[in-house]
């Protein structure tokens, strides 16, 4: 299928990847798989679409690979190497100036991914393998979670860093900051969810974090947490085979997204109007749920094995 170049930015892109070494691009409203790309050497750990919507980054063992979204090339076009272990997370500065990654070789890195500014590259070493990375919406602070349970707040400009340990020796699995930069959530391997309220750092000052709330989100380990774009909801996914949507006003449960035999729910992402949510699970299906009703609206079938990662870019009307 040839993608119309002019309507590039009005496009919805949904990409999924996991253990079957393929990445699939879906037509969201029909559930038809538009394209399959090969991720030959390893499973896909994380996916992210570049801000210009032209490329898709996929991380695996030791590599980050970039795929062209505008062409039909099933092979990657760029391969980033130099990491010795699994790359667990990837993301981009909102104008595409640089790329950030987190990896199990105990580091978070800033990449000059377009080879435009040689001095962008930076590395931040941690004492335990990095499980997740999240960029604060202010674009200068990177939150890094690791297996020993530490959350690092790394100021990219000053290289100043701070540590937070919500629960000792309990692996942090995901961190998210809401779009307004006022709330931060982190989930751990015991299924607990921690909430902090953030204050805006004045010029040059780092963001201050104040513990706000803590609750048992899941009985088994929680895998992902994401705020909705309107900051009113938080979704957590878990090994207990559910995804749960919480209201951020009081952190009460709004919906439980559950389906018989869907197994681990690995990833979730909201639509731009916070009305729908995509989930990825070990049964090899990506699913679309209606947030209001909690009903499943679409199913995306085609992967042979578990889906671990989702990347989604919505557009507004």
């Amino acid at each position: 299928m040839v993608v119309d170049g002019t309507s590039e930015n009005d496009q919805i892109i949904l990409a999924t990847g996991g253990y079957d070494h393929t990445i699939k691009i879906w037509q969201t409203h029909t559930g038809i798989c538009q394209r399959t790309m090969q991720h030959a050497e390893s499973q896909v750990n994380a996916l992210e679409i570049t801000p210009d919507k032209l490329s898709l980054a996929a991380t695996g063992y030791q590599h980050i690979r970039m795929y062209d979204l505008a062409s039909n090339n099933p092979n990657p076009t760029v391969n980033y190497e130099g990491i010795t272990k699994n790359v667990t997370g990837v993301g981009f500065q909102e104008d595409g100036k640089w790329m950030y990654t987190g990896s199990e070789d105990c580091s978070a890195r800033i990449w000059d991914y377009r080879l435009k500014s040689a001095h962008a590259a930076k590395i931040f070493q941690t004492s335990a393998p990095v499980t997740c990375v999240c960029l604060h919406p202010n674009q200068v602070e990177l939150l890094v979670g690791d297996q020993s349970g530490v959350i690092h707040l790394w100021d990219l400009k000053t290289d100043h860093n701070e540590q937070f340990i919500p629960e000792g020796d309990t692996m942090i699995l995901d961190i998210d900051v809401d779009s307004e930069g006022t709330l931060m959530a982190a989930v751990n391997s015991k299924g607990r969810c921690y909430i902090w309220s953030l204050t805006f750092g004045r010029d040059g000052e780092p963001t201050k974090m104040y513990p706000k709330h803590k609750f048992e989100a899941h009985k088994r380990q929680a895998l992902k947490c994401k705020f909705s774009p309107d900051s009113t909801l938080l979704v957590t996914t878990s090994a207990d085979q559910t995804a749960r949507i919480w209201k951020t006003c009081d952190f009460s449960l709004l919906q439980e997204l559950k389906q018989e035999n869907q197994r681990w729910v690995w990833d979730a992402v909201f639509s731009s109007d916070s009305q729908y949510i995509f989930t990825a699970s070990s049964d090899g299906y990506a699913k679309l749920w209606n947030v209001k009703t909690g009903n499943m609206e679409r199913e995306y079938a085609g992967h042979q094995k578990a889906i671990i990662a989702l990347a989604f870019r919505d557009a507004t009307v």
Binding site: T28, D273, T316
Partner: peptide
Amino acid sequence: TVGKKSLLSEQL
């Protein structure tokens, strides 16, 4: 983007 309708919702 808050308050704006998503293209996904519209298509659905």
